[in-house]
Design a protein around this nucleic acid. Structure first.
Lengths: 170, 170
DNA sequence: CCTTATAGTTCTAAAATAGAACTGTCAAAT
DNA sequence: ATTTGACAGTTCTATTTTAGAACTATAAGG
C-alpha cells in the first residue's frame, strides 16, 4: 500500500492515520504540545535526523496542522505552531499518554503529571459520550454506516463466527 | 533511533508510540475493534502483506494487547482477540476517528456513526477531566514532572523565547 | 486424487530511514 | 576584516523496512 492512499479511504481512522500515524510525526506533535516551536528545538529534543524532520514539518504544514510563522527577518526564520486543527489533536495525545501511564510505566511511576488549571487538580483524561456524559467503553458502542460510507461493509455486528460448522466439535 | 528503544524512554507517550505507533499496527487494531479475529480476516480487510501481518500480530501478542486463542484443533487454528489492555486502547481509537470525522471528511460526511447503547443516541467522544468533569483543551492543562521523571527537563513553561535580544527589531 | 480454506514462511526488489557531512545567512566577537 | 557560532535546512551513502509474490503445511470435502 502507498501510504498517501490512506487519506482517501472512506474511514476517518485510516485518513487520520495517513496524516499523523507514524512514529516521528507523533513525537513531533508531542513536542509541539510541550511548546517546542523551532527546527533546532525539535531536532535536539527528539534526535530525529534533520532530513526527516524537515520533511515531516513540511507535511504537517501542508495538512494545516502546523503554521509556519516568521519570527525574524534578515536570516529569515520561522517557527512552527499548532493551528486549531492541530490543537484539536489534543485528545489523541492525551489518550495515548494515559494508556501509557496505565500500562507502560515502571515501578517509578508516571513521568509526567497533568494539572487541570480550572480545578487545580492532577487528573486523568476520561472519554465520555457527548449525549449522555457517561464514560465510554468499546462494548457499549455500536457502529453503523454514515452518509460518507461508500461500499463500506456493514461490520458492526460480530460476524457470527462462520466456522462453517466444520470442526467446532473436533 | 532504534524504535524498540522508545519503549524505555521516560515518557508515556514515547512508550506507547513504541508499541502501537505505526500505521499497520493502528489499522490492525481498528480491525480488532470491528471484530476481526483471524489472520485471513485481517489480511483481506487491510491488504497488508502476510509477512508483516504475522510480525505485527506476534508483537501485539507479546505486548499483551492481543491474546492468541485456539478455536479448533487438527489444523491448529487461533484467533486474535483484544485483552483488557487492548480494549483500553479504545479511547485512542475513538479520539483518532473523531479527529478524522471533524477534519478529514469530504462532502459526503462521515463514513461511520457511533451509537451509544446506553442512551441510544449517535454521539461524539468528548474528553473530560477525571476530577471536575469539564471538557479538556490543551491550554487549560499544565504538565509537571511525576515520580517516574528521571532527568526530564521541566518543560511545562513555554521557554520565554530566548532570541537573545538579537534582531527582534530588525 | 484434487481442490479449497487457513495460517503462516521465504524470497527479491523497492522504498524509507539513519547518520553524517555540507550549504547559506546573518550576528557577534576578535 | 576575519572567524566563530547559531539556525534552518539540503545532500549523500549505507542500512533497514516494506511490498509483492510465491511457496509450505495441514486437514476437510467432493
Amino acid at each position: 500500500m502507498k501510504w498517501n492512499e490512506l487519506e482517501e479511504e472512506p474511514c476517518s481512522m485510516a485518513r487520520t492515520i495517513g496524516v499523523i500515524g507514524d512514529r516521528w510525526t507523533l513525537l513531533i506533535l508531542r513536542e509541539c504540545f510541550l511548546r517546542t516551536r523551532r527546527f533546532e528545538g525539535f531536532q535536539s529534543a527528539l534526535g530525529i535526523t534533520r532530513h526527516l524532520l524537515a520533511e515531516r514539518l513540511k507535511k504537517l504544514v501542508r495538512q494545516g496542522i502546523l503554521r509556519r510563522i516568521p519570527y525574524q527577518e534578515s536570516p529569515k526564520r520561522h517557527e512552527y505552531i499548532l493551528t486549531q486543527k492541530g490543537l484539536d489533536l489534543y485528545p489523541i495525545m492525551m489518550a495515548i499518554v494515559h494508556w501509557g501511564d496505565t500500562h507502560m510505566v515502571d515501578e517509578r511511576g508516571r513521568p509526567l503529571l497533568h494539572q487541570h488549571r480550572k480545578c487545580g487538580k492532577d487528573f486523568d483524561p476520561v472519554m465520555v459520550c457527548s449525549e449522555c456524559g457517561e464514560p465510554l467503553s468499546a462494548k457499549e458502542v455500536h457502529t453503523h454506516p454514515g452518509p460518507g460510507a461508500r461500499g463500506l461493509p456493514e461490520r458492526s455486528a460480530p460476524e457470527p463466527r462462520k466456522t462453517k460448522a466444520r470442526s467446532r466439535a473436533a
